[in-house]
Design a protein around this nucleic acid. Structure first.
Length: 297
DNA sequence: CATACTCGTCAACTTACCTCA
DNA sequence: TCTGAGGTAAGTTGACGAGTA
């Protein structure tokens, strides 16, 4: 059914790689190019003379349906649209795969081979590029959605892990504080009183366990007793807090652990999630998910 | 050299037609 | 047979670059 003149490999190559050949051989171009001997192409009048055309594509177009009157008329703009034949489309597709842009020379060559007007070829390429772009966008969307879903899953698992760690920090903090209270009990009351006036301009040091936000940040200030005015910040002698008691080795260990936890966790969280926020796209997270990036301590 | 004009091409959008479930 | 949806060829528009007077 296919005319080997058009569809055999060598001929296809002549069309598809014409541009390359153009660069190296004008003779090849001449042989491919419009000549008087070409029965299927006569420049701008090619559509008028198709009755004599021997292109394999063209006879399928019309003779089935409309006879010779429409055979010519099918290319008049007033006529109804006609689909390209599968062979024509296949040929154009192969050409598109090679190069999706259409140089004028190639356009004319394809038009000649397919028995179409150069304008039809140009339009086909324009529409094909548009379809290609649409499909590409769909693919891109799918891939982005996949990435988003994966990131979301990661985020969710990190969030859960983070919640667990926060609970652990809170428990350890409370444990630490209750131990401090036990230590302070034997102290005479008048030792603490002179420091009361300072509390007026200093935030309370004892963290409120009921306030989630104060848990970590206040715990930080509790232990930064080496600051210059730490004496003013501390309601009790800081030396008592960090008093080294060789007899209570396990407690010391516990204290160190608590301290390191208190100091390090907020940092870790900040490092983990701060880099999510500067992303201008917010990684595509929905607004409701973005709200949880600001941890309520 | 700068400017204005023409021409060809492109992307984006729209319309009209065809096919098929 | 009718109909609506989807695909596709072709039209329209505006932007852009190259060539030219």
């Amino acid at each position: 059914m296919e005319d080997p003149r058009v569809c055999d490999g060598s001929n296809m190559n002549n069309v598809l790689f014409k541009n390359e050949k153009l660069l190296c051989s004008s003779e090849v171009l001449d042989s491919l190019w419009i000549t008087d001997s070409s029965p299927s192409f006569h420049g701008s009048t090619s559509m008028v003379n198709f009755e004599n055309a021997e292109s394999s594509f063209f006879p399928q177009i019309d003779k089935k349906e409309n006879g010779n009157d429409d055979y010519d008329g099918c290319f008049h703009q007033s006529e109804k649209k006609r689909r390209l034949t599968p062979d024509q489309v296949q040929f154009l597709e192969k050409s598109f795969e090679v190069e999706n842009k259409l140089e004028p020379e190639r356009k004319l060559q394809l038009a000649k081979e397919l028995g179409l007007q150069p304008r039809q070829v140009a339009i086909w390429f324009q529409n094909r590029r548009a379809r290609y772009k649409t499909k590409n966008l769909e693919k891109e969307y799918d891939s982005l959605k996949q990435s988003y879903d994966k990131l979301k899953a990661d985020y969710d698992s990190h969030f859960i892990e983070n919640e667990k760690l926060k609970i652990e920090v809170r428990m350890l903090t409370e444990k630490l504080l209750s131990r401090d209270k036990v230590k302070r009990k034997p102290e005479p009351l008048d030792n603490a009183e002179p420091k009361k006036p300072n509390l007026g301009h200093v935030s309370p040091i004892i963290p409120d366990a009921s306030s989630a936000k104060s848990d970590v940040s206040d715990s930080d200030s509790l232990h930064y007793t080496d600051r210059p005015n730490s004496a003013l910040l501390e309601p009790v002698d800081s030396s008592q807090v960090f008093e080294h008691d060789p007899s209570d080795f396990s407690q010391d260990e516990d204290d160190s652990l608590s301290r390191s936890l208190l100091l390090s966790f907020p940092k870790v969280e900040a490092e983990c999630y701060d880099d999510l926020q500067p992303n201008p796209c917010n990684l595509g997270f929905p607004v409701e998910a973005q709200g949880t990036w600001f941890w309520p301590y």
